[in-house]
Design a protein around this nucleic acid. Structure first.
Lengths: 198, 198
DNA sequence: AGGACATCGAACCGATCGGTACCATCAGGG
DNA sequence: CCCTGATGGTACCGATCGGTTCGATGTCCT
């Protein structure tokens, strides 16, 4: 039965549904861990519908990764903003948010970095680079407002901790990883701003 | 021609040849980026030979990852030992070695972590966990000899920097990443040991 | 009312996947 | 010298891959 009776025909909603399910499944199983047919089955959608919305599997992957990057960037920026004006508090809030993420059931590292690790050509590396840029923008703002002499370098060091923590929490046990990253970041922030007080 | 004239028949050598080529190609193309047939072609070997030596593609992947983990662990330990007795010098030497690695042409991140990001079940995650354990052993030794109050926590923070640096250097441009990680590690080491001097 | 659009289900495409089997051919060790 | 075993080459297996096409059936918009 091509179109069920009574369903509301809404292309935008269908697209979101595919995006949502594909985001989950591709995160769990890896980009090459499931085929288009399986994705369609999980999303309750026919192949024709998927291909009309996304053109190709790679197009779907790109859309999934971009949507997730948007979500993560908004989420971290919100965590920082909710922490008030103090740069150290904002930094702590960002790493606290990450720590909570690592402890969520089903955490498998950063989906975007995982994707880039799987396909070194195509959409994934581009989205990954932009994703890191967004993180860097948030972090260098914090570093700058904290009065660091070299905010960009400090921000990159925060970035190393963020991405390293995701990898280590994923493959080496979560226990304490988020907290360790947070404390390391605060130590670096303190060391980079302490010289102004002397 | 089943066996070329003049070739020395040496199973161990054949195995090493497959291991070497597969290590390169699987690193470049990803675990799912090339099939067994392609691997055999690149190694100049028949499928039957590959399957006799490794049993399955997964067996080959496991052997490749374990060999690489061994090599990396030996390499980093050697770098630390060559730097003398001073813990800070050893730590700097480890991160210097990593920084040189990031700048090598063809660098694509840590092959073992990339593999674990692709296959969240099977050989890769186990090898990855063991790989991180080995790093941690080296780093906590340095942290302990430096007199840190909590060497294990400090070592985990070093680990975050190592793994984060590999990811960031891979996907966000190498420039300065190794140096930034090295300086961050030394700052953390200094901060963790300074309190003993007060 | 009627045409444009959305969707499902299924068949189909060529290519490739991991893995197996067979055989001719050669090296190495007794 | 002769048997064992390692090897390359090739064909083959069923399954799955990404992607296309078609028709039936329905909703939505004018």
């Amino acid at each position: 039965m091509p179109v069920d009776k009574g369903v509301t025909l809404d292309p935008a909603r269908t697209r979101e549904q595919i995006l949502r399910v594909a985001g989950e499944v591709l995160y769990e199983q890896g980009l090459d861990g499931i085929g288009v047919a399986g994705l369609c089955a999980r999303a309750g959608v026919s192949k024709e519908t998927l291909y009309r919305h996304f053109g190709s599997k790679d197009g779907l992957v790109r859309a999934v990764l971009e949507a997730r990057s948007d979500r993560i960037a908004r989420w971290l920026r919100g965590a920082a903003e909710d922490a008030g004006q103090e740069p150290a508090a904002q930094l702590a809030a960002v790493f606290d948010a990450l720590a909570r993420w690592y402890e969520e059931p089903g955490f498998r590292g950063c989906a975007i970095m995982n994707a880039a690790a799987q396909h070194h050509e195509g959409a994934a590396p581009a989205v990954a680079a932009r994703h890191l840029d967004r993180h860097l923008e948030l972090l260098s703002g914090i570093a700058g407002r904290a009065g660091a002499a070299d905010p960009d370098t400090l921000a990159r060091q925060f970035l190393l901790l963020m991405e390293g923590a995701a990898v280590v929490a994923d493959h080496h046990g979560v226990a304490g990883t988020g907290e360790q990253a947070r404390r390391a970041a605060l130590t670096l922030l303190h060391a980079a701003t302490a010289q102004r007080d002397t």
